[in-house]
Amino acid sequence: MAPSGASAAAKPQAWGEHLSATAVRRAGFDPALLLVVPAALFMLLLFVYPFVYGLVLSFEPKEGGALANYHHFFTSNRLWPTIGTTLKLAMPATLINVFVALPIAYRMRQPSPWRRTMTALLVVPITLGTVLIAEGMLTYFGPKGWLSQFLQAAHLYDGAIRLTHNYWGVLISLVVSGFPFAFLLILSYITGIDPVLARAASTLGADSRAQFRYIYLPLLAPGLAMCFCLAFVQAFSVFPSAVLLGAPAGPTRVISIAAYEAAFEQYDYSLASAIAMLMGFVQLLIVAFVLSLRGWFYKGPVGGGKG
């Protein structure tokens, strides 16, 4: 005991620090944690409770057993194809948004007056909202719209132009509303990558393409996956433009329309809940798949060293 007592006496300060650190750990409670309570309550009341309520409701159908709603969904020709219809819209829209935004954002990685103009222009569709975009598109892309009139007046294309009230109308609107979101998100990821890395690569012989492939793309991959997920979830829950710009009775009868009809036309909240749960499940599946791909990539900080 004597040696340890002597060393403790020799280093009173270190010993004291050690004591206070264990004391905090033993107590195991940091009052600052209480700051989490409002947010936790908020999540509980506005997210967890409605979700659980809907989940339970979906297992309490108007008639039949607990799984009757799900059974009905997958056997009804009016319901289960909506998953495919929605995917057919959401997937291409997401892919276009992410992979068109990527090269443009890459070109704009250096600050310039252009970037400010472009960013300002792109924020506009985000603030407008889908309904206003649909309104505008109806007058612009419609059979008697400006685009059609211009193409015919210029004799560039004389056939009938059908870009509204069908699949293409909805796809275009998903791109218009989703592209700025994807672009701004990717731009912020790209500008977060230290440009000195690309310069280092260039002194080592990497041209612009190689810099993108070996430096930017691997460092962006986790961000791209995240952007893909957010853009996909946004596109998958398409509703207003599928009604206003699409053919809601046929080719663009997306899953949210099916849920809406069940809830507000058939007043079957239980079935509507089941459809909403399935919608969430499909989204979750895709998101989980894409995020699991992130495990293949480097996920650490994107700086070049201590700065």
Binding site: D194, V196, L197, R199, A200, A201, T203, L204, G205, Y214, I215, P218, L219, F297, Y298, G300, P301, V302, G303, G304, G305, K306, G307
Partner: peptide
């Protein structure tokens, strides 16, 4: 140009 360069903040590729 093919000159080797060493940067102040190292600029190692983190991935």
């Amino acid at each position: 140009r093919g000159f080797g360069m060493v940067f102040q903040n190292y600029a190692l590729f983190p991935h």
